[in-house]
Amino acid sequence: MKLTGEPGGVEALAEEAVVAACTLADAADPARWSAGAVEDVAAALEVLAGALAQLDPECAEILSVVPVAAAAVVERAEQADAGAGEFVGGRATAGTSAALRQALVAHGLTRHRVHQLGAALVTVTLDAPEAQALALLLSRRDALSRQAQQGVEGGWGAGPAETAAAALADALRTYGTGAYARVLSSGQVSAGLTPQTAQAAVAALTARPGAASRGKRRGLGPGFRGVASR
């Protein structure tokens, strides 16, 4: 990353942004927020993170957690505004990452890193073939059967990391809003999801046939090259 250091329009706009943010922070307290205000600030966070992500791929990787975290905060505000009471995920996040690790291992997905980043975000990082396998496991049963057959015939799971990330993002979004998956500079796939989405995914994984078979992916076929074998 190379910074120019030359004065220009970006510096003036950035200064205006931080002044506005400070003014908002001084005026805000827990009793004065509305769901609309939370949504606006969350949108501003996403826009600013997107602007900083243009600096280089490493910055983009660091800031990739912002969209899903912002979405989780907006969801929390919407639930509070609707009178849904205390945010469910905030009380039940302690064991979410551990449960997700156990569910992944039960399906033979052992090359992963799962992190709980506060109460709003769970991340999981996998090799591309394992990300593709997880996407398939999280798909609906009709899609599972169809994609497993594709694996037998066409080497499902052997495609590029971008394909694995797209498939995993699509699968995760069926379990909750705000989930994402992207390819890291290392070539691995990193996914971010809210604790509620993670809990739903864990429930789906543990309900899948073969979840207790410790690595034997029954019915997924030999197309998962590089996943089951080490």
Rank of each mutant, 00 (worst) to 15 (best):
M1P: 05
K2W: 11
K2R: 14
L3M: 12
L3S: 09
T4C: 06
T4Y: 11
E6P: 03
P7R: 11
G8P: 11
V10E: 14
E11I: 10
A12I: 13
L13E: 13
A14S: 13
D26K: 12
A27S: 14
A28S: 13
A35M: 02
A37E: 15
D40Q: 15
A42T: 13
A42M: 13
A44F: 00
A44V: 04
L45D: 10
L48N: 07
G50A: 01
A51C: 08
L52T: 04
L52M: 13
A60C: 11
E61T: 10
S64H: 08
V66C: 03
P67L: 05
P67V: 02
A71M: 10
A72M: 06
V73T: 12
E75I: 01
E75P: 01
R76Q: 13
R76E: 13
A77C: 07
A80I: 12
D81N: 08
A82T: 00
A82L: 06
G83E: 05
G83Y: 02
A84P: 01
A84F: 10
G85I: 08
G85L: 09
G89E: 15
S97T: 15
A98I: 12
L100A: 05
L104A: 08
V105P: 00
G108V: 12
L109Y: 02
T110D: 07
T110H: 07
V114I: 09
Q116R: 14
G118I: 06
A119C: 08
L121F: 12
V122G: 04
A133W: 02
L134G: 05
L134V: 06
L137R: 01
L138D: 00
S139Q: 11
R141Q: 09
D142V: 04
S145K: 07
S145Y: 11
V152Y: 04
V152N: 05
E153C: 05
W156C: 03
G157N: 04
A158D: 06
G159F: 03
P160C: 07
A164I: 02
A166P: 00
A167D: 06
R173H: 11
R173N: 10
Y175H: 14
G176W: 05
A179Q: 03
R182G: 10
L184R: 15
L184M: 13
L184C: 12
Q188S: 10
A191W: 01
A191K: 04
L193T: 08
T197G: 01
Q199V: 07
A200H: 12
A201L: 05
V202M: 05
A207F: 09
A207G: 09
R208F: 01
R208D: 02
R208N: 03
R218L: 15
R225D: 00
G226Y: 14
G226F: 12
V227M: 01
A228C: 10
A228S: 13
R230N: 11
